[in-house]
């Protein structure tokens, strides 16, 4: 499995846990989890994958990565 596909699989796994949490905003929780636990280079790789079409990414994960990417961009701008 390529590293990129592995990251997509890992993100989807995270998504499958948070999606059924009926009292939570799943994309927000997914974004929070990936933001807290993934090294920036892993995040950059998954952003690049999303920018390239996001093949294989489940819907809540796609939304989560989008939000996280925006947050990281904003952080970089502030820095």
């Amino acid at each position: 499995m390529s590293h990129e596909n592995k990251l997509v699989m890992m993100a989807n796994q995270i998504g499958k846990f948070f999606a059924p949490q009926t009292n939570m905003d799943a994309p927000e929780m997914i974004a929070d989890h990936i933001g807290k636990f993934w090294d920036p280079r892993m995040r950059r790789q998954i952003y690049a994958h999303l920018d390239a079409g996001g093949d294989g990414m489940d819907a809540p994960v796609r939304e989560a990565i989008k939000r996280l990417q925006e947050r990281d961009k904003a952080k970089q701008t502030r820095a």
Binding site: H3, W38, D39, R41, M42
Partner: peptide, 18 residues
């Protein structure tokens, strides 16, 4: 302030060259 790599991520990153 950013999280680092976990062991499996380190190995993946090593194979990737970073």
């Amino acid at each position: 302030s950013e999280p680092g790599l976990r062991i499996p991520n380190m190995l993946d990153a090593a194979v990737d060259g970073s």
